[in-house]
Structure formats: structure tokens, C-alpha cells
């Protein structure tokens, strides 16, 4: 049952549905977060005020990168993510309630309110993220090392932005992973900007998969923010890693619909850019593709959408209903007892 052109190998319906539902969930999650973030920040915006204070980097539009590879992963595979981590966390199966509670600064959160949106840790599904650009890549190298040392077929995926590919950690980590032939995949999400700096002003090559040749490893490029193409590139990379054939760099062309962070005046980009990108929305495209298939009805799609949104709504409700931590708990967890 293939719905694609002949030249494209089939992606199972089940996997397509999974990806679609996750993308719906991510999109809805980020939309809800954008709203929650503004609570208590009007009429005067103050980054430190409101229900969800601090910096907020949303991934609306960048869903394909996360779902296209996580569809191939299990609980035993590791994911490290950067400062823009919600799509990766959701696709990797991070506990949505605890994640949301963490972002709301509640005691029921993944880090008991100590970490916040950029610092989510869910060891149950081997997920972590952080606020220092490039820093997650070597952690994924370490996870890949562990897999090899223990004789497992676990893989480690480091998600980064295209801006992070110019950090020393990127180059050192890939060389190391190549020398040690580790099951590492670095997914570079090219959303055209590192904050305000355009990719072409910061990067010496057209795309970062080209840099794979510098480390003697495989590279793949996915254009048009296409979840299906991402699925295929990731399928190959994951198989390569699981079979002991070493690391891969996948770069995907993706879209950042929102500012670098919420509240970004975005004076560095043309106002027509985002509306143009939204025309190409991958979520709409995938929905259309699924709707056209014989195996799935409109009602099926609606059921999936409803289920995804309900899970998100429940997570937000859980976060809102939870209590703030006891102030003195700030002193705990520096060390294990």
C-alpha cells in the first residue's frame, strides 16, 4: 500500500500516522505555550513575569526533523536536544505532564522546577537538553560510546541548529565519533538563522552534510522540510548506526515560523518571509497526503488530532494544577545524598 510516486519506497501507514499525530501534538503544544507565555506579560512585556517566565524558544514549523527520526527510535536510544527542545522531547516520548509542569516551574516537573524549558531531563526515555549551543553533541557521543562498550545496538541522536555547526564542540565530537566508529547521528535543523545571523553569513559551506566528508562519515540532506524525506534519510542513518557502520550527519531544511525567542522583534528578516514559509507548511502537506490515501478516513484523522490535543490539554492542566516548590528546596539536589 503505497501512496507515493513509484520511485519512492513505501513508508508504512502506521509510521505515517504516528508521525502525523506527533506533529499535530507538537504544533498544538507550541501554540498553547505561546499563549501561556503571554499570560502576565501584557500590557507591558517583561520576560521575567507571568505564568511561564524566562526565555522561550518554540519549534513551530520544525516538527519534521523531530518526528522523521524519532519514529525509528526506541526507549533505549538516546536523544540530546538544544535550547529549542519541545519538538524533540515530544517525539522522543518525554512525559508530557512532567515536562509541562517543569516549564511552569512546578514541583511536579521533571526537574522539580529547577531546570525550566531549556533544561529538561527525562532519563526514562533517555532525553536531555541544554542551553549552551553545541553542548549536547558530546553527550550523545558518550551515549553512543556506552552503547558500543556494552555491545548494544542503541543509537544516539544529537539535534542541533545550523548555527551550532560552527561551534568547536560540533567538530571535535564528530571527529571523535568517526575515529571510534560510534552509533551517532547529528541532525542539523537549518532554520536559516542563529538568532539574527543568517546561515550564509556564518557558515562556510552550503549545507552541513557536506562537512561529513571532513570526518570521513556519511552525510545526507533533506530539503523542503519534508517529513517523509526525513524519515528515509533517518532510516538509513539509524540502520548504519545500529549495524556498526558509524556516524551520520543529516541536515534538514526547516522553517522557524516564530522569533528566535518569544518577544524577538525580528527586525533582521523580511516581513513576507514567514507567511511565505507557512504556505509550505509540512503539517498541512502531510495531512493532505494522508487524506488522499484510501486507507485513512477524515474521521480517522480527526480522531488522531483530537487524541493529540487532549493529551496536550491534560498536560497543561496538570501543570496548572500543580504546586510551586517549597522555596527551601532550592538548596537540595546539588549533590546526591
Amino acid at each position: 500500500m503505497t501512496m507515493f510516486e513509484e520511485k519512492q519506497p513505501a513508508v508504512s501507514m502506521e509510521k505515517m500516522e504516528w508521525m502525523y499525530e506527533q506533529m499535530v501534538k507538537i504544533r498544538y503544544y507550541e501554540d498553547q505555550m505561546a499563549e501561556a507565555y503571554m499570560e502576565g506579560k501584557t500590557p507591558v512585556f517583561n520576560i521575567g513575569a507571568g505564568t511561564v517566565p524566562g526565555e522561550m524558544h518554540l519549534a513551530t514549523g520544525q516538527e519534521p526533523a523531530a518526528v522523521g527520526i524519532c519514529v525509528h527510535l526506541t526507549k533505549d536510544d538516546t536523544v540530546t536536544a538544544p535550547h529549542r527542545p519541545h519538538h524533540h522531547a515530544i517525539a522522543k516520548g518525554v512525559d508530557l505532564k512532567k515536562m509541562t509542569a517543569e516549564i511552569f516551574g512546578k514541583e511536579t516537573g521533571l526537574g522539580k522546577g529547577k531546570g525550566g524549558h531549556m533544561h529538561l531531563f527525562d532519563p526514562e526515555v533517555k532525553f536531555s537538553c541544554g542551553g549552551i549551543v553545541g553542548a549536547g553533541i558530546p553527550h550523545a557521543v558518550g551515549a553512543a560510546m556506552t552503547s558500543k562498550m556494552k555491545g548494544k545496538d542503541w543509537v544516539a541522536v544529537a539535534f542541533i541548529g545550523e548555527g551550532a555547526a560552527n561551534a568547536g564542540a560540533f567538530h571535535e565530537s564528530l571527529n571523535l565519533a568517526a575515529v571510534w566508529n560510534l552509533p551517532l547521528i547529528v541532525v542539523v535543523e537549518d532554520n536559516s538563522y542563529g538568532i539574527s545571523v543568517a546561515k550564509k553569513a556564518s557558515t562556510s559551506v552550503e549545507s552541513n552534510d557536506l562537512r561529513a566528508s571532513a570526518y570521513g562519515i556519511a552525510g545526507a540532506y533533506v530539503k523542503d522540510n519534508d517529513p517523509i524525506a526525513m524519515y528515509k534519510a533517518a532510516e538509513e542513518a539509524v540502520a548504519r548506526a545500529r549495524n556498526g557502520q558509524g556516524p551520520t550527519i543529516i541536515e534538514i531544511e526547516t522553517y522557524r515560523y516564530l522569533g528566535h525567542f518569544q518577544g524577538d522583534p525580528e527586525l533582521y528578516r523580511d516581513q513576507t518571509e514567514v507567511p511565505g514559509l507557512r504556505q509550505l507548511d509540512p503539517l498541512n502537506k502531510l495531512r493532505k497526503m494522508l487524506a488522499e490515501s484510501e486507507n485513512i478516513s477524515e474521521a480517522d484523522l480527526e480522531t488522531m488530532e483530537k487524541r493529540a490535543k487532549q493529551e496536550v490539554d491534560e498536560a497543561y492542566q496538570f501543570a496548572r494544577d500543580s504546586s510551586y516548590p517549597d522555596p527551601e528546596s532550592a538548596l537540595k539536589d546539588v549533590f546526591h545524598p
Binding site: G105, G113, K114, P327, E328, A330, V334
Partner: peptide, 16 residues
């Protein structure tokens, strides 16, 4: 700051 990293949640940050 009492020798802990700066926590995220407002109640915690204000405490340290």
C-alpha cells in the same frame, strides 16, 4: 547565593 546553581522557578530563584 548559597552555593547552588541558579534555579528556574521564581520561588526558588527569589530564595537564593
Amino acid at each position: 547565593i548559597p552555593d547552588v546553581p541558579i534555579p528556574y522557578s521564581g520561588v526558588l530563584e527569589d530564595f537564593v
